[in-house]
Amino acid sequence: MFGGIRKSLTSFLRSWRSEASAGREKRTHNLFEAAAVYVSACAEDDQDQMDEAVSWVSPEALSFGVNELACRAVIALARERDKSPQTVARELLGLPTT
C-alpha cells in the first residue's frame, strides 16, 4: 500500500518539478486547482473545461488531487450531517448503508 503511495507521490513531484522548470513564462496551475476545475466541470458536464484541467498537470497529479478533493468533501459532508464518512460516501454513491 505504501509503495503505491510513494510511487504516486514520486511521479507527482517529478512532473511538478519538470512543469515548473519548463514553463516559467506561462502561469502554472497546481494539482488542487486542476482537480477542483476538473471535478466541477464533470459535475456540469463541461467537456472543454475538463480537457483544459487535464492539460494543466500530469494524470498522476490530477488523480491525487481528485482523490484529495473527494476525501475532503466527504469529511465536510459527514461533519455537516453528523454522520460517519463511510455512511456519507455510501449514500452519495447510492449504496446501502451498514
Rank of each mutant, 00 (worst) to 15 (best):
V39T: 12
R79G: 06
L95Y: 00
S63H: 08
D82V: 11
G94T: 03
E68H: 03
K26G: 10
D51M: 03
L93C: 05
R81V: 04
S63Q: 13
Q47P: 00
A53R: 07
W16K: 01
I75W: 12
L13P: 08
R14T: 01
L95Q: 01
F64V: 00
A20C: 13
E44Q: 03
M50R: 01
T97V: 15
R17S: 14
L62Q: 03
R81M: 12
V54L: 12
E52D: 06
A43S: 12
T28Y: 13
S15W: 03
W56S: 06
A22L: 14
E19T: 14
E33K: 00
A78K: 03
L77Y: 05
H29P: 00
N30T: 11
R24T: 00
E19A: 12
S58F: 07
S63V: 09
E52W: 09
G65H: 01
D48S: 07
T87Y: 05
R17I: 11
M1A: 15
S8I: 07
G4D: 15
S84D: 10
G65L: 02
A89C: 10
Q86N: 13
V54Q: 07
D51I: 03
D46P: 05
V39G: 04
R24I: 09
G3E: 15
Q47L: 01
E44H: 05
V37E: 12
A43D: 13
R24M: 04
F32E: 02
V74P: 04
R17Y: 08
E19Y: 09
S15E: 00
D46K: 07
F2E: 12
E52P: 00
A43G: 14
D45K: 10
G65I: 02
F12C: 13
T10I: 10
L77K: 08
G3R: 10
I75R: 06
R17P: 08
C71N: 14
E80P: 04
D51A: 10
R14I: 05
Q49H: 12
D82P: 04
D51Y: 01
M1R: 11
P96S: 14
R81I: 11
S21M: 14
R90V: 00
G4W: 02
A76G: 14
P85A: 01
A89S: 10
G3K: 11
